[in-house]
């Protein structure tokens, strides 16, 4: 059986706890199958936190200051709003203020659908991009997870790892799709990468050819050759994200891309409303249909301009 994202996280954690003298702090670690099977049961260095959503991240920061490189797990990203103060006010400022970073690895788990509704269907990585001193990434494959973990160990800044439950059982790597004559370039973030793959297939049947560039690092977001070249050729793009669209990662990246390439780039994320528990009231990652609709419109506009 191939190694899934959940397997990868569990193995990295086990190694960190057993060989690296690390810590993993979180609430209800033993619940829901050891957090969807991402935590090694009974490993040393597991810290069951009380329901201390605001002070809990402070404990992790203190552990980092004395040399532990702790992992902090938040089972739902909605808890980030409580956790955020010590992370952005203290940890993210530490390197600039005191010349020494605070290396905490924050596993924040996004989820949606299945009746999770207003409280538990949320994805909030965007707010952390705002803060100097934070690294923000959203790995969705086993290899990517291994890479961001290695990056964490090499540098001391705090890292917000925006995980998504939709990735946990996946073992697939997700290479970019690039055509010489694509009509549009899609940039996909978090679970939107899975729906974007479906959208590309859907649009192919309508003879709309899409590039698909996968984005793992939201901050720093590098406008390198891999990212820019497909957009320069396709002359239009869409950034798709599982988080809210307004003032979110999709708008931020779309701005950078648009400015750098001088071509229109749309942002697409969650609608500007609360998610409901009933299936017809959900508000999650843009569906393949919603992505396809935006792409059709962009391609239509592009054609009409020529």
């Amino acid at each position: 059986m191939e190694k899934t994202v959940a397997d990868t996280i569990r193995e990295i954690t086990r190694e960190h706890l057993t060989k690296n003298n690390g810590l993993l702090l979180g609430q209800c670690i033993t619940a829901v199958g050891w957090i969807q099977n991402t935590v090694p049961p009974n490993a040393p260095g597991l810290v069951e936190l009380p329901m201390s959503d605001v002070s809990g991240p402070g404990f992790a920061i203190g552990a980092a200051i004395v040399g532990k490189r702790p992992m902090l797990v938040l089972r739902f990203q909605s808890f980030l709003w409580l956790a955020v103060s010590p992370i952005v006010n203290y940890a993210a400022k530490a390197r600039d203020l005191w010349g020494k970073g605070v290396p905490i690895f924050i596993r924040a788990i996004a989820s949606e659908g299945k009746g999770t509704g207003p409280v538990h269907s949320n994805c909030f990585h965007s707010i952390f991009m705002h803060m100097p001193g934070m690294r923000v990434c959203a790995p969705m494959t086993p290899h990517e997870y291994q890479e961001i973990w290695t990056a964490f160990l090499k540098q001391d800044d705090p890292m917000l790892v925006s995980e998504h439950r939709r990735s946990y059982l996946s073992s697939a790597e997700m290479p970019d799709i690039v055509h010489d004559d694509a009509d549009v370039t899609l940039y996909a973030i978090s679970a939107a990468r899975f729906t974007a793959v479906e959208a590309v297939e859907l649009l192919k049947k309508e003879n709309i050819r899409c590039n698909l560039v996968h984005i793992v690092w939201l901050k720093p977001f590098e406008l390198n050759e891999r990212v820019m070249q497909p957009l320069k050729k396709s002359r239009c793009g869409v950034v798709i994200d599982s988080a809210f669209e307004i003032a979110g990662a999709s708008q931020s990246l779309a701005y950078d891309l648009m400015f750098a390439a001088g071509v229109p780039v749309r942002a697409l994320g969650q609608f500007d409303r609360c998610s409901g528990v009933a299936p017809h009231l959900e508000n999650g990652t843009p569906t393949p249909q919603r992505i396809a609709e935006v792409v059709r419109e962009m391609v239509r506009n592009k054609t009409s301009q020529h």
């Binding site: 991240p57 200051i65 203290y90 005191w98």
Partner: peptide, 24 residues
């Protein structure tokens, strides 16, 4: 250890340091 200015925010941090380094 330096403080960033928000009162009391260092208290959980101090507690975390005490947890992680029992030799001090």
């Amino acid at each position: 250890i330096g403080h960033e200015g928000l009162i009391g925010e260092h208290v959980p941090i101090a507690v975390g340091a005490a947890y992680a380094d029992r030799s001090s």
